[in-house]
Design a binder for these strands. Structure first.
Lengths: 128, 128
DNA sequence: TTGATACATGAACACATATTCATATGTATG
DNA sequence: CATACATATGAATATGTGTTCATGTATCAA
């Protein structure tokens, strides 16, 4: 935790080999807001249960008890995770009587899962 | 933790309203391997420091001390995070004397960050 | 070889998080 | 209204994770 390389002071206790590059990149970085938001978003994707839920909803709208049976998990655990997915606007829900149906919010969710899968595939390929 | 809805037994202690859909989706789900791998991958994106590193490397190859100065963090903390990014094959590194330069591994990293940003943008829009 | 520089890493601690358990909310049915 | 059903949620606990601190490794210079 030295100092922020702003316009006035770029001299830290940390050695800095490429001052120009650092200054330039610092100017190009998005606001901290956005960084924090991105991390929060990906954190939601970073749990096997939630990924499993998203993969399931990708193929069909499902209610909570369906997901519970499908994932072999307690209804409570599923509900807790659905709450987090809702918070990140990755899923939407609609009520029909006592049953609440969940589905994916939009195509971003699919895209993110796909690009992630691609990366894993190439990763496996590069290990050979 | 009831039972897995495999071909032989789909009857759990959890109520299952849409048995057909559940069976169908179960057949379409990827192997657990892949789910776990995806979650592990996104977990790496799920930390502000690591996102910040990736956003930085997106614009320029940088060495550890550059990143340390840029992010105003200790060299140790940055190194620990770089290790995790390397493990997920999100960054590559090359040595030049005592200095080690890091850069993004491939375009998947950029794409994932971009799609995430898009989602956040639309999320903000939908809140209005 | 000795010292300095750039980076990596193990241990420890503080903090976050996923599941379980118990209970609450909301909706249909009788 | 009372009951059953589908889902949500608060509290507690166990496990995971990021940073710091101290130390180790690798490279260059003298």
């Amino acid at each position: 935790m030295a100092c922020q390389p702003d316009d006035q002071d770029l001299f830290c206790d940390v050695p800095m080999i490429h001052e120009e590059a650092v200054r330039r990149v610092f100017g190009l970085l998005p606001r901290e807001n956005r960084t924090e938001g991105l991390a929060e978003l990906f954190k939601v994707f970073g749990d096997p249960t939630r990924v499993r839920i998203l993969q399931s909803l990708r193929h069909s709208e499902l209610c909570v008890c369906d997901l519970s049976a499908l994932l072999a998990m307690s209804q409570s655990a599923v509900s807790h995770q659905l709450r987090i997915l809702r918070g990140a606007r990755l899923v939407r829900n609609r009520r029909e009587g006592r049953v609440i149906y969940y589905s994916l919010m939009d195509d971003h969710v699919k895209t993110i899962l796909d690009v992630g899968s691609e990366h894993l595939a190439e990763e496996a390929e590069s290990k050979r």
